[in-house]
Design a protein around this nucleic acid. Sequence first.
DNA 1: CGGTATCCTTTACGATACTG
DNA 2: CAGTATCGTAAAGGATACCG
Lengths: 122, 122
Amino acid sequence: MTETLAPDVNRVNCPSRQILEHVTSRWGVLVLAALLDRSFRFSELRRHVGGVSEKMLAQTLQALERDGFVHREAQPVIPPRVDYSLTPLGHDVAAQVQALAHWVESKVPEVQEANTSYDARS
Amino acid sequence: MTETLAPDVNRVNCPSRQILEHVTSRWGVLVLAALLDRSFRFSELRRHVGGVSEKMLAQTLQALERDGFVHREAQPVIPPRVDYSLTPLGHDVAAQVQALAHWVESKVPEVQEANTSYDARS
DNA sequence: CGGTATCCTTTACGATACTG
DNA sequence: CAGTATCGTAAAGGATACCG
């Protein structure tokens, strides 16, 4: 009677979709990929990920922490020091996301050529 | 003298970042994942990907076609018939993106537990 | 059927100022 | 340093209507 429906990202209100959106969000991707290499302090991360604002970085980190992908370690010192790292679960997604990012970086020439020929037809 | 800088998604104006954003966009992810299984007609895709509007689907498909990931085949018949499929390049991204989507679907319970314990602390 | 054009609303995002 | 609060703008997105 109590059927558990399998998670499906194609369904509008499936929780998997929101998780996927956190992971693939504009800044989420870059933050996860960065943290795969090493842990970062807040301001380090801000410098590392070009163009991210304090607000969006904080928001992104909170979403990823809430989903159990990122671990936040605050040291009670003055000035404050907070380190962000991946959880085991986060390590798994981050590996996939970073692979994707690297793949894209490696295919830039092909894509640019596709852009050019597409634009030529229009 | 004419140095070619390696593509880096962390740089604000690197083309790789925009490509990555197309691929990881809200609807881009779901469209690529769907097309990995088979080709789709426009309205099939619209029904398959829950919640997508005509406008966004058209926009997403255009971006993916322009980047060389999706092939668009329009048959000159009445009523019109247009089939969308993956290019070889698109097949590679789609495989990664679908793997990510499936991974997320499989981890929904873990993430929901993380959500609960996070919310309990706040 | 497979779109495009228009309008409108909502959300994302950035800039700035402020706090523990 | 590591954020939060507030505000304003820009972009994303949805609804509807229309066209080839």
